[in-house]
Simulated assay, not measured.
Amino acid sequence: MTDLDYHSIITIEPGKRSGKPCIRGLRITVYDILEYLASGMTEAEILEDFDYLTQADIRACLAYAADREKHLMVINS
Rank of each mutant, 00 (worst) to 15 (best):
V74G: 02
G25E: 06
L62H: 03
L72T: 12
Y36N: 11
E45N: 09
R24E: 04
M73H: 15
T29W: 01
Y31F: 06
R27L: 06
G25D: 01
M73A: 15
D67V: 00
V74E: 04
N76S: 02
I58C: 03
S8A: 07
R24H: 07
E43M: 13
I12S: 02
T2I: 13
E69V: 04
D32L: 03
V30C: 01
H7C: 08
H7Y: 11
A65S: 07
D32T: 10
D67C: 03
V30A: 08
T54R: 07
C22T: 14
T29G: 04
S39M: 06
R27C: 08
S77I: 10
I75G: 00
T2A: 11
M1R: 09
A63Y: 02
F50T: 06
G15S: 11
S77R: 15
D5T: 06
N76C: 02
M1V: 12
A65N: 09
Y31R: 13
F50P: 04
M1E: 06
R68Q: 12
I9V: 10
H71R: 13
R17P: 02
S77Q: 15
T54H: 12
T42G: 02
R17Q: 00
I9G: 09
A60V: 07
R68N: 05
K16D: 10
R68M: 06
R17K: 04
S77W: 09
I28C: 07
R68W: 07
R17T: 03
S39F: 06
